[in-house]
Simulated assay, not measured.
Amino acid sequence: MDIVIAAHELRVLTRGTTLVGPLSFELRHGTTTGLCGPSGAGKSTVLRALVDLLPPELRTEGEIHVLGRPVVHRKGDADLRSKVVLVPQTPVVFGGSILDNALFGIRHVLRESKERLRQRAELALAEAGLWEEIRDRLDTPAGNLSAGQKQRLCLARSLALEPVALLLDEPTSALDERSRDTVEQSVASLRGRRTVLLVSHDPAQVARLCDTTIQLEEPRLEVQPAGSASGTVDGP
């Protein structure tokens, strides 16, 4: 199916007050889409709504479909969250080795041999652009990695699940320029192979990485090509 995620008239509400929406959009296979807007517009909230990870005080209205299947609010659908993976703004690195971290997600969702799980983790580290830097120290503590390497490790941990889509929440906001460029290269390499929804406050980054943009404003959402004359960003 070409359409991976579809939202129709999606609203996020609290106590009857609409915080985000209504908004409608479609994310197609292999595309990278930027989700942009001012601080407080609800960009991270949209990401969490797509995988049913909103806090208890928030609820959704409207429709969300992943691969044609409806996302049911408060269902706690682990299968959904292995297909559409949210990578948070601050990289979460667990205690243990680099390899332990890369294996963390798939250990809980796949019943495979240790050898097969390791193969999946190593392929994901390569896809995230980290393999060449850490291949000789997989058993060293993940906490010793640089900030940019930790972000790519989180990306690899998600990719090991072989998701249909990745939701990236400001993946370079806390990085220096060199680390940002390296993470951007990893994200750019996913184009055409993974569906990516990228939250970014940087219009130039969106222009570099994204095929289209979703501009989140109060109170409406506009979807437009990244290079359109009426948009807030230029095409890559």
Rank of each mutant, 00 (worst) to 15 (best):
T90P: 00
T90C: 00
T90K: 10
P91L: 10
P91S: 13
P91K: 08
P91F: 10
V92L: 15
V92E: 14
V93Q: 11
F94D: 08
F94N: 06
F94S: 10
F94R: 00
G95Y: 11
G95H: 14
G95R: 13
G95N: 13
G95K: 11
G95I: 00
G96F: 11
G96A: 12
S97T: 15
S97E: 11
S97M: 09
I98N: 04
I98K: 01
L99Q: 06
L99V: 05
L99R: 09
L99H: 06
L99M: 13
D100A: 07
N101V: 05
A102Y: 04
A102L: 07
A102Q: 05
A102M: 07
A102F: 04
L103I: 09
F104E: 07
F104I: 08
I106S: 03
R107V: 01
H108Q: 14
H108K: 12
H108I: 00
V109R: 13
V109M: 08
V109I: 04
L110A: 12
R111I: 00
R111W: 09
R111E: 14
E112W: 08
E112M: 09
E112G: 00
S113I: 09
K114F: 07
K114D: 15
K114Y: 09
E115W: 02
E115C: 03
R116D: 13
R116K: 14
R116W: 01
L117V: 03
L117G: 08
R118F: 04
Q119C: 05
Q119A: 14
R120L: 12
R120C: 01
R120M: 12
A121T: 04
A121D: 02
A121K: 00
E122C: 13
E122N: 07
E122I: 12
L123V: 04
A124N: 01
L125S: 06
A126N: 12
E127F: 00
E127S: 11
A128C: 08
G129M: 08
L130H: 05
L130R: 04
W131G: 03
W131I: 03
W131D: 03
E132K: 13
E133Y: 03
E133S: 07
E133V: 01
E133M: 01
